[in-house]
Write a protein that binds this DNA or RNA. Structure first.
Lengths: 161, 161
DNA sequence: TATTGTTATACTCTATAACTATA
DNA sequence: TATAGTTATAGAGTATAACAATA
């Protein structure tokens, strides 16, 4: 067994691996989101699609799939259901009839905003459990690290494509 | 579209959902860990088992499975391989020959420590990208929130069993 | 020939059910 | 009969390959 130095309060073994912590926290956050989304008739994938269309309206399904990190075949059923419920518009591009123009309907916009607002309320309640002095920096760190490209975290080029 | 107030720097819509961020960060962290573990001949599950045996040596496989959030049938192959490589001991309990006593071998301890040390080096390199003033609070927040039981995050009792 | 979207197929991971051996 | 562990089966989720329409 490696010798532990009791005088060293910063010993590395005092915290779990970062991935272990993000896995546990992510599982809890997803478990908290799913019932809220279900109340709005949304699956996680459906919600992700609505968010992606809001931020960057896209002109092909393949581009949407890549933007949200999904396979292009994976989202077809999701788009079918969102369209059936009138939350998105999916029309052929007159300029290139192979492509489908994807956009949020007003109803889709409302559902998205309503679901996100409910999720935010839960998140604020969770963040309130952190000491005041840690809250802002925790969020800043999470925002910064989660925005890094995968290669920046792995340190190895070409692992993602 | 909801009106954005440009004078309000704290507007809620300026950050992604917490779950979206933890999903992205977790994916990157796992992608960073896997090649390091592979260099030590470990899978993610194998590594998780070695860590669990280190923290709480357990006397039944079912208890181990529950401790790491896995199905009891899920870890059998993992234990088989770790045992074949001499990283764990798995002996029948003389007091109850149905149960298997699980413990780390010295070799298992070495592999675990070596893999974890390599992972820590990568993590420190990542954390160094955060501004000095955010680093400690980010870690403190992550440690605190990831340690919460799922029900504390969901706010709903009985979602986990 | 290349590209967009779709469908059909196969593969991976995980959980459920059935079996054995002990108690 | 109940429990620990194992094996066999089935299910969910995802990716890969093949196809039709359009360029």
């Amino acid at each position: 067994m490696p010798s532990l130095d009791p005088t060293n309060g910063q010993h590395e073994r005092t915290r779990p691996d970062l991935a272990a912590m993000t896995t546990a926290l992510n599982r809890s956050l997803v478990a908290a989101e799913l019932p809220v989304l279900a109340e709005h008739g949304l699956t996680m994938w459906g919600y992700v699609v609505l968010l992606a269309l809001d931020e960057h309206p896209l002109r092909t399904q393949a581009a949407l799939a890549e933007a949200i990190g999904a396979d292009k075949t994976r989202i077809i059923g999701v788009l079918d259901e969102l369209q059936d419920r009138g939350l998105i518009d999916r029309q052929r591009d007159p300029a290139d009839r192979r492509a489908r123009l994807l956009s949020l309907t007003p109803a889709g916009h409302d559902v998205r905003d309503s679901a996100q607002a409910a999720i935010r309320r839960g998140e604020e309640r969770l963040l309130a459990r952190l000491p005041e002095r840690d809250r802002e920096s925790f969020l800043a760190g999470l925002i910064a690290l989660s925005a890094l490209p995968v290669e920046d975290v792995t340190g190895r080029p070409g692992d993602s494509p």
